[in-house]
Design a protein around this nucleic acid. Structure first.
Lengths: 239, 239
DNA sequence: TTGACAAATGTTGTATACAACATTATAATG
DNA sequence: CATTATAATGTTGTATACAACATTTGTCAA
């Protein structure tokens, strides 16, 4: 069920169709089931998501604001591409927030929570699905501790984007290093060494960034032309 | 025409009705022409903005994501209230970004721009409208210099929120101190003292925060019950 | 073949009717 | 009078038809 202090965002008034459509489409984009650069049309989405254009358009509007796609008026809807520049921007944004959250708000999280985190990071789960979830919850925990709605909102956007890269680069191996780094953060928190905890988080994020950048630069053989040289806002095909 | 390096956001494909409606409604909320806590209904907005529900709903969806209003399904739409806690969150967010932008990306801005800034901040314009514009552009300039789409996007949201407080507290007097602080930032930038420039920006933001918090706490006589004790996401009237 | 023009197609933008739910008012009942 | 049941109203959610614009295709002439 996740740690304490974890986001209450798991709202379940999700009964509404527009919410279902939004979450479903977002999941498909983040998981790269729909690849970067893909053109979407409302009509096809309506069929696939089994809804009319109204809730679909609502979802599209939100996803555009979250930088996951771009709507070119009267032309089409394109899933935003990913790029080296984009990775840098994402991790720079994370570095602005996460170490700060750890250093100044980590003390809002109970020792028992840290103990539990450490325990989990030591257990040898092999299911990457599970490890990813732990990873996400660990980072989210610190952001939520700031209790700052703007930082939380901002982090949501950045986190979702980061997930796309995680899927694309399929960094299974990185996962285990990542767990060790998480444990280091949690242990420093447990000792009340907030500066060191922040530093540990900083280098953890740097390592993740390097790992992804490294992958993106060296991907070549099975590369699917996913990583664009251009920047994110997907361009409509020039005519 | 503003400084160089200033946001290119002034897109003018704003022909579309939904864009016009969005900008108009957003302006009304930011300028507090529509007061915090107000309940809106789509029908009334349609009349006022002379559009059908489709573009109006589109605008409402975007404004909800920007934390300017909250849509309670099947109940109503409420302009988010403002509060002490909210001011703190806003300025904390700004402190995460702005000094950083100054320190690490201020050198991307030409000396001539800083000279021009200083000149303008010294001229004794009395029109607060004009001063506000200079103020906004000055801060935006540094954010844009980061060329980080996520930081820029985030700052947009925070900036708009800040404007609401500016209007509510009508801090005319603060404006002049503010200009002097801006000049200090620009001068440190011109000298290449990026750390000092960042520090100047930091204290400038702190001062703005204090000014607003001070106003909010002492506002009493002409207070219009605008500042809620509760937090931003406007609650639907409990029943 | 090339070019220009026109028609057809694809796609989103906008308006509107109706459905679903929440709240309030009303009336009936004890 | 108090309480409950029921109807009326208000508000957003959803579906769909049509309009506006962009692109592509096709036709015809030079």
């Amino acid at each position: 069920m996740g740690y304490r202090n974890v986001s209450k965002e798991e709202k379940k008034p999700s009964q509404s169709l527009k919410q279902i459509v939004y979450e479903d489409l977002k999941r498909r984009i983040i998981s790269c089931e729909i690849l970067p650069g893909t053109q979407l049309t409302e009509e096809i989405l309506c069929e696939q998501l089994k809804a009319s254009r109204t809730p679909v358009r609502d979802a599209l509007s939100r996803l555009e604001q979250e930088q996951l796609l771009t709507i070119h008026p009267k032309k089409g809807i394109f899933v935003n591409t990913v790029s080296l520049a984009n990775v840098s921007e994402l991790f720079e944004a994370r570095l602005r927030i996460e170490p700060y959250a750890v250093q100044y708000y980590g003390n809002r999280i109970g020792d028992d929570v840290y103990v539990e985190c450490i325990r989990r990071f030591e257990s040898e789960t092999r299911k990457s699905r599970e490890l990813y979830r732990l990873d996400d919850e660990f980072h989210q925990m610190f952001i939520d501790a700031t209790r700052n709605r703007y930082l939380i909102m901002f982090y949501n956007t950045v986190r979702d984007q980061t997930m796309r890269y995680r899927v694309l680069s399929a960094m299974e191996r990185r996962l285990f290093d990542s767990q060790a780094e998480h444990r280091e953060v949690a242990m420093q928190c447990l000792r009340g060494n907030w500066e060191r905890a922040a530093e540990a988080m900083r280098s953890h994020i740097e390592n993740s960034k390097i790992s992804i950048l490294d992958y993106v630069m060296h991907q070549n053989r099975d590369a699917k032309n996913i990583f664009a040289a251009t920047d994110i806002p997907a361009e409509a095909p020039e005519t």
